[in-house]
Each structure stands twice: as structure tokens, then as C-alpha cells.
Simulated assay, not measured.
Amino acid sequence: MTENPVAEPRVIATEAALDFLAEIRQDHPDILFHQSGGCCDGSSPMCYPASEYRVGETDVKLGEIGGVPFYISGSQYEVWKHTQLIIDVVPGRGGMFSLDNGRERRFLTRSRVFGSNEVMCSIPTLPRP
């Protein structure tokens, strides 16, 4: 009997990240993540109050971590679509506008390339400009 392969999530979090996320949600229950594409805050996963961040038309929802939606820009998704993002926590300062700022810890994105034998969770095809 052949088992059906299980689709691997495109974004996951370490236990430390989930614990830190729960701490932040005590102060800000309705939040979302957006993977920064560089610029001022490097390539950090940014955590925002959901009511204060507008998800763009070409942003891609990779999944959820700890019940919190996780987005990435469409152009960045095209570069990272063969990887699984692993959200972790390290000592340091978060991005200037991210909710992890000022807590002496920050979220960090690690990644791994999906293996050829893995089935990735599907993401809708992005519209072409």
C-alpha cells in the first residue's frame, strides 16, 4: 500500500518563536507577519497589528504560524518559492516598526530548500503585470 505524501508547509516556526509570538499577542492579539524584502530592516520577518498593515494585491500568504497569517511579497516569493521559511527568535532588536522591537529579542527567518521528494503546499499562481 502506497501512502499519499503529506504537503510540507511553506512557513513554520520554532518553539521559541511560538512562545515569543504568544507573548506579543498578550499585548496585540490581532497581528500578522510580512517577510521584509530588504531596505531599512534587512530581510526580517516583520510583525504588525493586523489593523495597521495593508496586505498588497501581489502579496502571497504562505500560511500561518501560531494562528497568525504570514505574507511575503509576490516578487520575493518568486525567488524563495522552493524554500521553507523557518521563523526563529534570536537576541537583538526587531525592525523599527515591528512589534518585536524593544523586547531584546527579534524574529529571524531561516530557510531550507525543499527536497525533490517533498510535496510543497500549493500557492496560487501570481498574476503577471
Rank of each mutant, 00 (worst) to 15 (best):
residue 116 S to M: 07
residue 92 G to N: 05
residue 57 E to D: 14
residue 70 F to N: 05
residue 73 S to N: 09
residue 117 N to K: 12
residue 87 I to Q: 05
residue 21 L to A: 12
residue 99 L to K: 07
residue 108 L to G: 00
residue 120 M to E: 09
residue 32 L to E: 10
residue 51 S to C: 11
residue 22 A to E: 15
residue 89 V to A: 08
residue 8 E to N: 01
residue 32 L to Y: 05
residue 27 D to C: 09
residue 52 E to L: 10
residue 120 M to C: 05
residue 46 M to W: 04
residue 91 P to L: 10
residue 31 I to G: 09
residue 87 I to D: 10
residue 35 Q to Y: 09
residue 69 P to W: 13
residue 19 D to W: 00
residue 127 P to F: 01
residue 61 K to M: 13
residue 47 C to H: 13
residue 10 R to P: 07
residue 14 T to Y: 02
residue 24 I to Y: 03
residue 123 I to M: 05
residue 126 L to N: 09
residue 73 S to K: 00
residue 7 A to P: 08
residue 50 A to C: 07
residue 23 E to P: 00
residue 48 Y to Q: 04
residue 57 E to I: 02
residue 43 S to K: 03
residue 122 S to W: 10
residue 36 S to I: 00
residue 57 E to Q: 07
residue 126 L to Q: 08
residue 34 H to R: 05
residue 31 I to C: 15
residue 54 R to L: 11
residue 49 P to I: 01
residue 34 H to K: 06
residue 58 T to N: 10
residue 86 I to H: 07
residue 55 V to Y: 12
residue 65 I to K: 05
residue 84 Q to N: 05
residue 126 L to V: 04
residue 128 R to P: 01
residue 61 K to E: 15
residue 8 E to G: 00
residue 100 D to R: 02
residue 112 R to Y: 01
residue 109 T to S: 11
residue 93 R to K: 09
residue 98 S to V: 04
residue 19 D to F: 00
residue 13 A to Q: 10
residue 120 M to P: 10
residue 18 L to Q: 14
residue 43 S to G: 14
residue 1 M to E: 13
residue 70 F to P: 07
residue 129 P to G: 14
residue 64 E to T: 11
residue 54 R to Y: 11
residue 120 M to D: 01
residue 79 V to H: 07
residue 13 A to T: 12
residue 64 E to K: 04
residue 104 E to F: 14
residue 90 V to G: 00
residue 41 D to Y: 04
residue 47 C to P: 03
residue 115 G to W: 02
residue 106 R to Y: 02
residue 113 V to K: 11
residue 129 P to T: 04
residue 77 Y to D: 11
residue 95 G to L: 03
residue 81 K to L: 03
residue 20 F to T: 09
residue 90 V to R: 04
residue 41 D to A: 04
